[in-house]
Design a binder for these strands. Sequence first.
DNA 1: AAAATAGTGTCTATGAGACACTATAGT
DNA 2: ACTATAGTGTCTCATAGACACTATTTT
Lengths: 249, 249
Amino acid sequence: MDERQDPHQEERQFLAGYDPSQFDRPSLAVDVATLSLSQGHLWALVVKRHAHPFKGHWALPGGFVRMDESLEEAAERVLGDKAGLSGVFLEQLYTFGDPDRDPRTRIITVAYYALVDWGRLEGRQADREALVARVHVPWKGETGGPVDLAGPGGALPLAFDHADILGMAVKRIRGKLDYAPIGFQLLPSRFTLRQLQEVHETILDSPLNKDSFRRRMLASGLLVATGDREQDVDHRPAELYRFARRSAI
Amino acid sequence: MDERQDPHQEERQFLAGYDPSQFDRPSLAVDVATLSLSQGHLWALVVKRHAHPFKGHWALPGGFVRMDESLEEAAERVLGDKAGLSGVFLEQLYTFGDPDRDPRTRIITVAYYALVDWGRLEGRQADREALVARVHVPWKGETGGPVDLAGPGGALPLAFDHADILGMAVKRIRGKLDYAPIGFQLLPSRFTLRQLQEVHETILDSPLNKDSFRRRMLASGLLVATGDREQDVDHRPAELYRFARRSAI
DNA sequence: AAAATAGTGTCTATGAGACACTATAGT
DNA sequence: ACTATAGTGTCTCATAGACACTATTTT
């Protein structure tokens, strides 16, 4: 609507003759930080690298972005191929692009984080290819920083800047916990209020007031009582709730 | 520490022979959504495109990422080259990577947002190359969506998915406003509490309680009274405050 | 003096934490 | 009956909003 009428013919010619290889370009990858929760601790899924660089180290599942897939599709594909997970909660985290973060060449990575119920990761600790390791977060509050991973035989050396990515993932879910339905993603479809509170306490790494937590959660409108109760516990069984799908909002 | 000792010789050979051009790769760009504030409205800085595609349309300042610069350095460079701005608050926003977001080829863009004092943009409205247009945000609350830009002669057609980028920038600063020192970036170095409240009200698009706002801001510890007062106003002059640099935290 | 905004003190409503109490399961 | 946890009712405390009031500038 401004300028003279666009000569579409000219634009078509330009597009047909466009050569994307005329510039040196960085490579683009995705990496996925998959977090889960068990025994009052956060766990992350890492896979063993079979190729250089960082051969033999542990890394987040990742891969190069293909020409015909979106970033989120790439993250889903990588999670399926390298970790056998599909249909999990997945959200973009941050894009890491320091020029020297990869010794091969310039590789920028769009990091995603995934949250999965512990039941879907169980057994992976024995697996020698995809390992679930406990995340130790050496900081409280907002200062941030990379995390340590505790493996079966001591600290795990992480490849690239993946410790930073994991640290930012933990920081992100801490920040979103009280205004986004994060905690539900780490539980099975039906859960008790006590379980949900333990999820929050583990993520925040601090104890929460039981009464206040119950009130907040029930008042949020995100929980639906199922009428059923938990089974096989050696005390009074608690009511099972499920997450009210956001369609109601 | 796991596996046999890494043969560094082998790794060096691998890195020397690595050919990044063996795969078809997307291109990588940065785009910067620069927001400012005046007369109770948000404004965004856009530049006119002289090349295809979207020739003649308005777009956010952007450019391809060079091999030797970080993403943030690329954003700073682009902002300096295309908009003549330097030293402004800049933060990564989101990475947009839909396969068809650019008609040329696959181009992923890492979007940044910048916040600048209105004083640094003044006069740009007359400029035919870099234009400062008013942002109309057609949504309240959290639903999000693209924005409209109001130019001197009506609505401005924005190139690519830049309306989505601007929409996400507005959503982001709304979300961060009450826990991050966002508002100060949109004001000159010394400002009154009333000015700061107007910044918050404009970003949130809703009126705020004066008393409560004063208390919150003064209790936050982020403000330092200068002892000076504003000049040339036709009523009682207010005290001028400055932003307490985060070094104190 | 009038007008306009800056800034203070106090009351009230709301929501979180603390605590006491009752309810219901297994042993 | 005893123990452990689920779940409820009530009090208190901290914080935001409402409102009344005083203070200080220009016209």
